[in-house]
Measured scan of single mutants.
Amino acid sequence: MATGGRRGAAAAPLLVAVAALLLGAAGHLYPGEVCPGMDIRNNLTRLHELENCSVIEGHLQILLMFKTRPEDFRDLSFPKLIMITDYLLLFRVYGLESLKDLFPNLTVIRGSRLFFNYALVIFEMVHLKELGLYNLMNITRGSVRIEKNNELCYLATIDWSRILDSVEDNYIVLNKDDNEECGDICPGTAKGKTNCPATVINGQFVERCWTHSHCQKVCPTICKSHGCTAEGLCCHSECLGNCSQPDDPTKCVACRNFYLDGRCVETCPPPYYHFQDWRCVNFSFCQDLHHKCKNSRRQGCHQYVIHNNKCIPECPSGYTMNSSNLLCTPCLGPCPKVCHLLEGEKTIDSVTSAQELRGCTVINGSLIINIRGGNNLAAELEANLGLIEEISGYLKIRRSYALVSLSFFRKLRLIRGETLEIGNYSFYALDNQNLRQLWDWSKHNLTITQGKLFFHYNPKLCLSEIHKMEEVSGTKGRQERNDIALKTNGDQASCENELLKFSYIRTSFDKI
């Protein structure tokens, strides 16, 4: 039985969820670079991206490699990797027998973001014989899940209580170790020597080791999670996991709180800001991140802002960003909400898709409305799209047979046209069989910064309504002859009103 693990408890099935942008060198404390989270699957090609990484700022997932063999891993080693800020997950990587050479110096898994409450997941690794993470000293947050690894031993010899604050939620089941077939031998045991430290858990006094050649490092209890030197002297209180010299914040392997210019500090002093819960960055760093993602459509890219001495992905609820200094300031009234469309555009074809934009005031991208039916549609669209004030790209209304009016965009005031449909149009209306009105132009103002209007096959939309939009939106004169079809717009509506004058002759039985 794995020490510190839980057996036999019912657990939810383990679901495996399925960018080499360097964020800056980590400095003297770390020998390499800070790398983003990685999802490495199918083959070993991307694994080489770990070569210079000291910190993975995010998670590391290595999974679904069915053609790899043990010899493929023999020359692979990433000794610079010290810390993973989120979680480490391995799933069905064939041929991998140990992690001792792959990650010989991995010391800390912070667990800032977890995989279903777990910071370390080893699942269905069919050839893994031992973990071998002999320098792993601290899992700051989260638990361990090690399950269905039929060859995995050296679990009962690990004292997880020396690595985690609590072992109650560890789930370590259905491994070879369960069948008591392992016969784990710690260093020196074969020669009758006791080389590794022994600890007591559940009444068992057991030597602690990761492999037959690597003991588990056990520091004096007084050192807590700070770690200790090879001689057993406690590291500085700002260290986490390990250090090369005692009581020196510049000799830590990793930091308990924050890293700044080669030393570990309790908090980031001005003019620095907390970033990702582990390091200090200056304003320029946060500003660069903001600008890199301002026009990016890459998933996970955030326009970072500053709030409460932190550089964070977005302002919290009730705050909006001051564009001059990136500071989050309290909103006066309802907060603006910028919604970034991942692929640059979004099609609204149902109430469900409209709900995804609920509360958005600025759309960074283009909207395509293609709704053919739905219950209580006008009210639903207004509830979900009615706060949109600005669209950076274009607005396209296409084959939306259920629409009679666009009044559900009740606050839309600006279409920038930074991206144009077919390279020309910022407003595009095609084949809307029941569209009769755009907006009530006596109450609604709309500016279209650039781009043209396109109207074709809107049989109940009168040309007068379209011409009014040209005047109000500032697009009059931009359109070419064929942009607004004269014969297919309003051709099934009563669009022309003329005053009919009647004269009559009164007659009676005795007068003409």
Rank of each mutant, 00 (worst) to 15 (best):
222 I>E: 11
333 G>V: 03
63 L>R: 06
32 G>S: 03
201 I>A: 07
74 R>D: 06
287 Q>R: 07
145 R>K: 15
133 L>I: 14
154 Y>H: 09
215 C>L: 05
235 C>L: 01
334 P>M: 11
112 S>G: 05
283 F>I: 14
212 H>C: 15
79 P>A: 11
184 D>W: 07
67 K>S: 06
152 L>M: 15
107 T>F: 05
158 I>N: 04
108 V>M: 13
288 D>I: 04
56 I>Q: 00
176 K>E: 08
110 R>I: 06
68 T>L: 10
199 T>I: 06
155 L>F: 07
189 T>K: 11
277 D>P: 03
239 C>S: 00
169 D>P: 12
239 C>V: 01
217 K>I: 10
108 V>L: 10
226 H>E: 06
60 L>H: 00
175 N>W: 09
324 S>L: 11
308 N>H: 08
287 Q>N: 06
218 V>Q: 12
300 G>R: 12
128 L>V: 03
228 C>V: 05
87 Y>E: 00
307 H>S: 09
204 Q>I: 02
196 C>E: 12
315 C>W: 02
129 K>I: 12
100 K>H: 15
263 R>A: 13
227 G>R: 02
303 Q>F: 10
95 G>M: 02
82 I>L: 07
321 M>T: 08
297 R>I: 12
85 T>F: 02
135 N>F: 01
54 S>L: 10
317 S>K: 13
132 G>A: 08
49 E>K: 15
170 N>P: 06
242 N>I: 06
260 L>I: 12
80 K>E: 06
80 K>W: 12
247 D>F: 08
94 Y>L: 15
147 E>H: 05
131 L>G: 01
56 I>N: 01
120 L>Q: 00
28 H>N: 14
132 G>S: 06
302 H>K: 11
96 L>T: 03
139 I>R: 01
251 K>L: 08
332 L>G: 15
98 S>Y: 06
297 R>S: 11
46 R>I: 11
252 C>D: 00
270 P>K: 08
206 V>P: 13
313 P>N: 05
137 M>P: 01
60 L>I: 11
158 I>H: 06
103 F>L: 04
156 A>R: 10
227 G>F: 06
152 L>V: 11
59 H>W: 07
250 T>N: 05
43 N>C: 03
277 D>G: 12
277 D>C: 03
213 S>K: 11
214 H>T: 09
55 V>I: 12
284 S>W: 09
267 T>Y: 14
274 H>T: 15
55 V>T: 06
180 E>F: 04
243 C>Q: 01
165 D>G: 12
189 T>L: 08
198 A>W: 10
105 N>M: 04
63 L>N: 02
287 Q>S: 10
142 G>A: 02
96 L>A: 13
119 A>H: 00
95 G>N: 06
196 C>S: 07
88 L>E: 00
163 I>G: 01
216 Q>R: 04
129 K>D: 04
63 L>H: 02
218 V>L: 10
216 Q>T: 04
196 C>L: 06
249 P>W: 03
167 V>H: 10
258 F>E: 03
319 Y>Q: 04
184 D>S: 08
204 Q>T: 05
80 K>H: 13
189 T>C: 11
212 H>P: 10
86 D>C: 00
252 C>T: 04
162 R>V: 09
222 I>W: 15
29 L>F: 03
87 Y>S: 01
110 R>P: 00
174 L>M: 14
136 L>A: 01
191 K>I: 09
112 S>E: 15
53 C>Q: 00
248 D>R: 04
97 E>I: 13
134 Y>S: 11
306 I>K: 03
264 C>Y: 01
95 G>Q: 14
44 L>M: 10
329 T>G: 14
190 A>H: 12
144 V>R: 01
162 R>P: 11
202 N>F: 13
150 N>V: 09
66 F>K: 12
241 G>A: 14
167 V>D: 03
162 R>N: 15
105 N>L: 02
228 C>D: 05
90 L>G: 00
178 D>V: 10
117 N>L: 06
336 P>S: 06
109 I>S: 00
117 N>Y: 07
139 I>Q: 00
203 G>K: 11
117 N>C: 05
35 C>W: 00
118 Y>R: 03
295 N>C: 04
227 G>Q: 05
79 P>M: 04
229 T>S: 11
229 T>E: 09
214 H>Q: 15
38 M>F: 03
319 Y>C: 08
146 I>R: 00
67 K>Y: 04
182 C>V: 04
70 P>N: 04
72 D>L: 06
62 I>S: 00
315 C>K: 00
212 H>F: 14
147 E>V: 12
240 L>Y: 07
249 P>R: 11
81 L>F: 00
331 C>N: 14
